[in-house]
Design a binder for these strands. Structure first.
Lengths: 210, 210
DNA sequence: ACTCTTTACTTAACACTGTTAAATTAACAT
DNA sequence: ATGTTAATTTAACAGTGTTAAGTAAAGAGT
């Protein structure tokens, strides 16, 4: 049943219909379970129709990624309401980890999967936006803590500090996601691991107080 | 050209021939480039012959993994020669990161890829061996440092400490491997990131000295 | 010497994948 | 009524992991 010329809005609608179906599939069964034919079946189209909206599977996955980056940033947006900058940093870490562990498949796709490097030029997201760029959010809070004079005197590069904090949290989450079921290691409780990592980061980066 | 009955030794030889060919392929081109047919072509056999030695591709990859776990442990073996336990811990971290960054494809396969959980029972490696188990090596050194009284008083669980140190180093390496090319983030020098992480870990975990 | 079994291996085939080329069919413009 | 255009589908290609069925060589038994 072949239809009529479509408005831009209708195209947009179909586009998000595809993305949503693809999401749903891969959230529950991982990226390998997502096949073009399966996505198509879900939305009642044929597989080739997807190619009218996305150049290939990689591009489609990237589009999912983009919406996920946005939802990560959105979920972290409220930390700016917290008064004390160090508390903000803590909250950011907890929020980030919560996102990673409640959406492991998304997290894997966003930060752990081999993929063509993201080109900020052609992303739908805005860089250095407090609403859309989680890395910018982190860097902002790091800057706040820095300005407030909490970091050790020898730490001056906000990017370096931010990337180290990120790496620490990412390390705990990533190991949890890909190795938690592995019986070789006697894994401790994930909350304990997260908490100690936060503690270690803070103690390691900040001046010794009291 | 169909051959004759083979001795156990000949079977072993062919097995490692397959593993080596598969390694070579995936070291240079990543796991997706490794196809059964391509491996077979390399060693002059047909694809189905591989199934006489490995149940499926997953099992073959796991076998590669096992040899890589061994080579990681081997590369770290010499740190026991270092006299001071804290220096040992440092060296372990550096050695681990060096392995990760010089063998990114292996590292990805070992620690970042979705796969059926490793069952220690049927691994060819020995757990809790100073020569074959990198996690055991780490835990041993952590215990040494603990016994020498360097860790903060509230830190008592050697597994938790070891897993946190691991996560920190893993975080830096993993982000480097999957995101280094990403232009969204203004990445600092990888050595600087590694060094700061080590520093932060040490400062965060150990008593304040001098 | 001739069979018979076992073993190592290959070819053929299946069911699936992403992707492209070639129809098909509906709506619109003239 | 005709032609054009756009949305969609079916058919097909080249590739994947994997299995079933065949083939040929070596050795054992008589």
């Amino acid at each position: 049943m072949p239809p009529k010329p479509k408005t831009e809005l209708e195209r947009q609608y179909l586009r998000t219909l595809i993305i949503d179906a693809a999401r749903e599939l891969f959230v529950s069964s991982g990226v390998n379970a997502v096949t073009m034919r399966e996505i198509a079946k879900r939305i009642g189209y044929s597989a080739t129709s997807i190619y009218l909206h996305f150049a290939d599977k990689e591009t489609l996955l990237r589009a999912i990624c983009d919406t996920d980056f946005l939802s990560l940033a959105t979920s972290l947006k409220n930390v700016v309401l917290i008064a004390h900058p160090v508390d903000r940093l803590h909250a950011l870490g907890r929020g980030y980890a919560a996102f990673a562990l409640t959406h492991p498949n998304h997290y894997r796709l966003m930060f752990m999967t081999e993929r063509a490097p993201c080109d900020p030029e052609q992303s739908s997201l805005q860089r250095n936006s407090a609403e859309q760029d989680a890395y910018y959010q982190l860097k902002t809070v790091v800057n706040d803590v820095h300005q407030a004079g909490y970091f050790r005197a020898d730490l001056k590069d906000a990017d370096l500090i931010a990337q180290t904090i990120w790496a620490g949290t990412h390390g705990v989450c990533a190991l949890q996601i890909s190795m938690a079921e592995d019986k070789w290691v006697n894994w401790c409780n994930i909350s304990a691991r997260l908490q100690l990592m936060q503690q270690v980061m803070m103690r390691g980066l900040m001046k010794e107080s009291t």
